[in-house]
């Protein structure tokens, strides 16, 4: 019996996921430990988003298991997995266009699964002052960067144990990117485990404790950022840098 204190927050074992006949994930096993920042890398179409969607219960794996905090959540509904303290910011952000900024934030406000109430509306607005100026605006009136801040702020409002960011900096201006990276560090320092999907090798290797590279639905590399940087061949072959 693993105690919930030391159990991995997310553990996938030998996941096989298909979209119709396409075999997307081919036996993916990853672990995210409490407080850890895991960088998930790989080129487009290698299965990163499918892995996240499988973890979140949005796609059913054909075989393999997903454990959250030691509990088998493989066939559970997505909202129950989220209620286990997993906050997922999808690529494209998923902002509700017809809701105001305040409503977008309030909608996911709740105490964490451990009862934590660290992240509140005032704290989120302190973190992203730009959102404070736009509370009454509709979601679709925000710039891309503001939407990304709103998406991360909304994810934190549920006081999660795990934050999953899928391409959070893609397509943003450099200054906004810096602000997102600053937030990712702050989240890490607050003790929230993070699963980070991003193509910016320099930033991911600077922040992550470990890096996993997916190639054609399989784990092609798993190790420390130092080990990755020490092997330019891997970087070149799998990430094209």
């Amino acid at each position: 019996m693993i105690s919930s204190q030391t159990a991995p927050l997310i553990e996938t074992k030998n996941l096989h996921t298909y979209y119709d006949d396409s075999h997307i994930l081919r036996g993916v096993s990853i672990v995210l430990k409490p407080g850890e920042t895991l960088g998930l890398m790989g080129r487009n179409g290698m299965g990163k988003t499918t892995l996240i969607r499988t973890i979140m219960g949005l796609v059913r794996p054909r075989s393999g298991t997903v454990h959250v905090g030691g509990r088998d959540m493989t066939r559970e509904a997505a909202f129950r997995i989220a209620q286990q303290g997993i906050s997922y910011v999808p690529e494209g952000r998923g902002i509700f266009a017809s809701l105001s900024v305040r409503e977008n934030l309030a909608i996911s406000g709740r105490a964490g699964i451990d009862g934590a109430t660290t992240w509140t509306l005032p704290l989120i607005l302190e973190l992203f002052p730009r959102l404070a100026e736009r509370l009454a605006n509709r979601g679709d009136q925000l710039s891309g960067g503001e939407q990304q801040m709103l998406a991360i702020g909304r994810a934190l409002m549920s006081n999660p144990r795990v934050l999953i960011l899928d391409e959070a900096t893609e397509g943003l201006a450099p200054l906004i990117r810096d602000e997102i990276w600053k937030t990712v560090r702050l989240v890490r320092d607050a003790g929230i485990a993070t699963l980070l999907v991003d193509k910016t090798v320099s930033e991911v290797t600077a922040i992550a404790d470990r890096v996993v590279i997916l190639v054609k639905g399989e784990v092609a590399f798993e190790g420390s950022p130092a080990a990755l940087k020490a092997d330019p061949a891997i970087l070149h072959r799998h990430l094209g840098v």
């Binding site: 979140m56 949005l58 509904a77 997505a78 909202f79 129950r80 989220a82 209620q83 997922y88 999808p90 998923g94 509700f96 909608i107 996911s108 709740r110 909304r154 549920s158």
Partner: peptide
Amino acid sequence: EMVDILGL
């Protein structure tokens, strides 16, 4: 789907 993702 986003409502599910938020745990609602």
